[in-house]
Simulated scan of single mutants.
Amino acid sequence: MSRGRYEYRVKEIRWLFWIAVGCFAAHAISYLLMPAAMRTFENNGSKGSRMLVGCIFWLPLLLGYILVILANLERKTFIRSRLDGDISMQCHMGVVTFFSNTPAVIADATLLAGSIALVIIYFCDMANQYITYVMLAIVSFSLNMHGLFNGRIYKTTKYKRTRRVENHE
Rank of each mutant, 00 (worst) to 15 (best):
V53K: 00
G22F: 09
M34F: 14
M89Y: 04
E42Q: 09
T77W: 00
G64A: 01
S100E: 09
W15K: 15
A37E: 02
T102R: 15
A107I: 01
L61G: 00
C91Y: 08
I13K: 10
R75Q: 09
D108S: 14
L111E: 04
C91T: 15
F57H: 05
D108P: 11
S100I: 08
W15F: 14
N43V: 11
G85T: 03
C55R: 10
K76G: 02
D108K: 14
F99E: 13
V68F: 09
A36D: 07
I29G: 01
L111I: 03
C91E: 15
F78P: 04
Y31R: 04
M38K: 12
F78I: 03
L73Q: 06
I19L: 12
L32Q: 07
I56T: 07
H27P: 01
M51A: 13
G45F: 12
L16W: 03
A28Y: 06
S81H: 05
V95K: 14
T77M: 01
G48L: 13
C55S: 11
P35N: 09
N43C: 02
A37W: 04
V105C: 14
D86E: 06
G48Y: 11
F57G: 00
K76W: 00
P103C: 14
W58I: 07
Q90Y: 04
S30R: 03
A25E: 06
R82Y: 06
W58M: 10
F57P: 00
M38F: 15
